[in-house]
Amino acid sequence: MSATLLIRALRDPAFAAMLDTSAWNGLLAAARAERLIGTLALRLEGQSVPDAVRPILTDALADTARDAQQAIWEADRAAFALRDTGLPVILLKGGAYVAAGLSAGRGRFIGDLDILVPRAGLEVAERALMAAGWEWVKEDPYDDAYYRQWMHELPPMIHGERDRMIDVHHTILPLTARPTPDAAAMVADAVPLGNGLFLLSAEDRVIHAVAHMLADGDLQGGLRNLWDIHCLLADVEPAVLAMRAARHGLSRRVAQARRLAAYLYGDGASLTPWDRIIAARLSARNGWGQETRKLLVFAFFVRSHWLRMPPLMLARHLFTKWRKGHRPQ
């Protein structure tokens, strides 16, 4: 299992010295598939690695440096577009980590720009972004309506000139999910970064990452999300985190994420049987970078829908998607 190699190398970079060529091929393929190649490259700085590996890691670091530069520029453009709205622009995920210089942002792959604005300001934000050149990408009226009625974010928009995507969130979980985090409290406690930009408090950053990984989605990219959590945990006060998690209805998930992060990337932890199933899902990748344990992966795909909406609504949603020709892979 090459995902296991990746986890081990991230936890203990000196482990890389013991790898043979076939293990290296598997490690690199897994790191790329999990979008952790930049993080791996950073962890392996100063380790002795084979000559053929060195340029691959150098390329990965250059790519993440460019990602970071682009992410900061996109954040700046969003703040500029929203400067007259009076709304705080709260950066989420990769963009926030990089803009604030957090360890979770170092070497991280960054895709879209994710921001959080107060729900009452959503329409104003949407108008201001469109005036500044962002456009809708979801052309399907069902998808568009679905986002607006049930999701925690606006349908994604893309900038016409820069071709970069923005996700505008108003809370951190779909409105149909069972836990209902207190988004207003998150906004109130956000930390200013300057230039109209903010980031969530240290505890809320962990809670958001946990909600994203364990209470939403099918654990695609879970190793990267868990690495984020592992890094973000270093900045929190455990007692404050526990209080904050209770407030957002995510105590169980946060505790689970702490066990998983400690088990896979840290000093170890004892896992529950359910933790072990998640850990098995997270390491489902072979030496070619392909996903394995197909049944388990599919089960988590089903679970992601189950988490996201009540059964009747789920049935209606799946039927609509199926009629439109969508099939799970």
């Binding site: 060529t21 091929n25 084979p50 053929a52 970078g289 892979q329």
Partner: peptide, 15 residues
């Protein structure tokens, strides 16, 4: 054969 590659290419069944 047996070297570390810059890239992995996969030709896999569509399903």
């Amino acid at each position: 054969a047996g070297h570390i590659a810059d890239f992995t290419v996969r030709l896999q069944p569509t399903n």
